[in-house]
């Protein structure tokens, strides 16, 4: 059994704004499960506008190609390593920006 996380998984949100259009990726959010993800998506991305259709999918369920043929997935500095949050030693005392 995996430990229950106190942080929820990331979901990607796709919205069909009106009939005749494709679902389009609008952003992402966190939710404990699919059903709550759908509710949160309605609240956040459509303000519960009726007549729109929403898809939510767990971000880690998406398989993606890279945008061009030189697939950086296989490059030395590919993106895999960045999946580990510990990779980021963010400076502790950032004065501004």
């Amino acid at each position: 059994m995996t430990e229950p996380r106190s942080s929820w998984p990331l979901y990607e949100v796709f919205v069909r704004g009106k009939r005749g259009l494709n679902h389009v990726h609008v952003g992402s959010l966190h939710a404990p499960d699919d059903e709550m993800a759908l509710r949160n998506a309605r609240d956040l991305y459509t303000r519960r506008n009726e007549g729109v259709s929403i898809w939510v999918v767990k971000a880690d369920a998406i398989t993606a190609s890279s945008p061009d043929e030189k697939d950086p997935f296989f490059a030395p500095a590919g993106d895999k390593v960045y999946r580990h949050p510990t990779f980021y030693a963010i400076p502790e005392d950032v004065p501004h920006l």
Partner: peptide
Amino acid sequence: AWVREAAAAYAA
């Protein structure tokens, strides 16, 4: 935290 944990535990 306990609410987030509860929801995650329920999903699991």
